[in-house]
Amino acid sequence: MRLTRPPARQAPETIVALIDVVFFLLVFFMLIGRMDATAPFEVSPPVAQTGSDMPAGGITLSVAADGAMAVDGLPVTDPMVPLLAGIRETPETLVRINAHHTAELRHILPLIAELEAAGAREVALVVTPSAP
């Protein structure tokens, strides 16, 4: 009597690798997407060709076209409270002002002066090299 082994089942390693890759891509896009959503309103920064590269980290103050403000994605009425708290903790924190290109300067310039007076070492205006 001849006995033949049933054919061995194919190992499922290939599917595991696929799932790993898809997971990495998923996490990557989730993180990238979250970085973009740092304001509860639409912010389209002004266009400038001479901007320098922006380092990561710091506090982001978003200013909407109508003057509404948010600090790190949370809407605030007085942005100086969380900003000053952050500066007092670490004065070398970079404060990024991500203002909509049509926001009026009366909302922004007094804030920069207050930040400088409060001891902020680095305050920067966020710009984009090309219009979105």
Binding site: G33, P45, R121, T128
Partner: peptide, 19 residues
């Protein structure tokens, strides 16, 4: 997430630089 993510090339102009 690929479709909803938008990529903005952001730069900065220093407004205050104490150094």
């Amino acid at each position: 997430f690929m479709v909803t993510s938008t990529y903005l090339d952001l730069d900065m102009i220093p407004a205050v630089s104490q150094d």
